[in-house]
């Protein structure tokens, strides 16, 4: 790395005027074939909701989405499920979304992944999940709740979400 990189600063509490855009949480229209809804909450080290967070999800095959949390720390996305992704070295990775988290109080963004609960076999063989200590893996796997996938992001403390260095 040769260049002196520009350092990061927090997104602050007032990004609402600049970053969210209309239907940013829809990677696919809700009524389209195969569309699924992802819902979750961003929580702090005391388990309190984080009402000023912004999440981005990204997978080259399915596109890019951006959603902010509401006063309850809740967010949602509508998308189709991505397929398996090739990994460096020719192995396959289980279907997943890359999830980027910004918030007031985060001086740098955080990067995590959301995997799918109906991919037990692929998840068990996933090279990234296998780098994570078994007790923490479940923080990366969404839960099926009725017709909705549930994925919480716990920034700190009990059941803290696994975040990756970038």
């Amino acid at each position: 790395m040769s260049g002196p990189l520009t350092p990061s600063q927090t997104v602050g509490p007032f990004f609402g005027v600049g970053l969210p855009f209309e239907r940013g949480e829809q990677l696919a229209p809700p009524e389209s074939a195969g569309a699924m809804r992802i819902e979750g909450q961003v929580l702090d080290g005391k388990g309190e909701p984080v009402p000023d967070a912004l999440l981005e999800i990204w997978q080259p095959a399915t596109g890019f989405g951006r959603a902010r949390t509401d006063s309850e720390g809740a967010f949602s996305f509508t998308t189709v499920k991505p397929g398996p992704v090739s990994a460096p070295g020719g192995r396959m990775q289980a279907p997943h979304f890359n999830v980027t988290v910004f918030a007031r109080g985060l001086l740098r963004h955080l990067v995590t992944r959301m995997y799918f609960p109906d991919e037990t076999q692929a998840n068990a063989a996933d090279p990234v999940l296998n780098l994570v200590e078994p007790a923490r893996r479940e923080t990366l796997i969404a839960k099926q709740c009725g017709g909705v996938l549930h994925f919480d992001v716990r920034l700190q403390g009990e059941q803290e979400t696994v975040f990756f260095a970038i």
Binding site: D44, G45, K46, E48, V50, A103, R104, G105, L106, L110, L131, V132, R136, L155, Q156, G157, E160, T161, V162, F163, F164, A165
Partner: peptide, 9 residues
């Protein structure tokens, strides 16, 4: 209360 306590992977 928002900084992760665990090291990044």
């Amino acid at each position: 209360l928002r900084a992760p306590a665990q090291p990044l992977v």
